[in-house]
């Protein structure tokens, strides 16, 4: 236990912000920036993808469906390697690991998130869009003012879950030397060499604390959303398991 305290005391800055200002921003800060940027940029893309999958035009539906299914069948690590290779080729200049991670995360998380959004839209009673159209709203208007606000609110807990997954996915940046938290921990381990268990224990606990807090928040949100909507028009938000819509079955363990 004392070892752990010593390690933390000596290295907390590295774990927190990496080698900044003597290097790029790293540690937890980098992890959080990657995750937040990743998910927030992924969000509008995911809405677009979801709408594409629900659109009446096959020429739009099929490629997008293919993309979403395709990305779900390939490990994230391989996709990161692809992006690391393709991006410089496409834009003609070298790309940092950080940028690669952001781009990959945006596309990857958007695919999974689009399933969440799609499920949210489809879970709304048909009467909603019918009512909106009967009142004279066009397709875009009824989406913007009636459908999406409800769908997205209902799916907030699932979207938060996807954010938590994104945080966990940032660890893969380690493989392409992105200086996030896992990378920092490995740096410490390579210096110390004698206390690997303590170092990685700290790493595991840190992620656990962050993700557990957010998961508990997601559960709170879920109860709140259910309560608010129970008297209203929304159907029970379906659960997403790894990007696939499940029948209404739920796990209570955060």
């Amino acid at each position: 236990m004392l070892d752990i305290a010593h390690i933390l005391r000596d290295n907390w800055l590295l774990l927190l912000i990496g080698q900044y200002p003597y290097g790029p921003l790293g540690g937890i800060a980098a992890t959080l920036i990657l995750s937040v940027l990743g998910i927030s940029l992924a969000f509008p893309l995911s809405v677009a993808l979801a709408l594409a999958r629900l659109s009446p035009w096959a020429w739009l539906r099929w490629p997008v469906t293919g993309l979403v299914y395709g990305l779900r069948g390939v490990p994230l690590l391989l996709i990161i390697l692809w992006t690391y290779f393709l991006l410089p080729v496409l834009i003609g200049q070298t790309v940092s690991g950080f940028t690669t991670m952001i781009c990959t995360l945006v596309v990857y998380e958007a695919c999974y998130l689009s399933e969440v959004v799609r499920a949210g839209i489809q879970a709304l009673p048909k009467g909603q869009s019918e009512a909106a159209r009967s009142l004279g709203h066009g397709y875009v208007r009824s989406l913007r003012y009636v459908i999406l606000p409800q769908a997205l609110y209902n799916m907030l807990p699932s979207m938060l879950s996807q954010f938590i997954t994104t945080i966990q996915d940032t660890t893969l940046g380690y493989v392409i030397n992105v200086q996030e938290l896992t990378f920092a921990a490995n740096q410490i381990n390579n210096q110390l060499l004698t206390q690997p268990f303590q170092v990685f224990f700290i790493l595991a606990v840190t992620y656990f604390v962050v993700c557990f807090t957010l998961t508990s928040l997601a559960h709170l949100l879920e109860r709140r959303v259910a309560r608010r909507r129970l008297g209203g028009v929304a159907a029970l938000a379906p659960e997403i398991v790894d990007g696939v819509v499940m029948p209404a079955i739920r796990s209570e363990v955060p």
């Binding site: 938590i164 945080i167 966990q168 996915d169 660890t171 893969l172 380690y174 896992t182 921990a185 490995n186 268990f197 990685f200 224990f201 790493l203 595991a204 992620y207 656990f208 993700c211 557990f212 998961t215 363990v253 955060p254």
Partner: peptide, 13 residues
């Protein structure tokens, strides 16, 4: 524990 700690970190641990 297993759902909140990233798989890569579990492997390393």
């Amino acid at each position: 524990y297993h759902r909140n700690v990233p798989t890569l970190v579990q492997l390393m641990l």
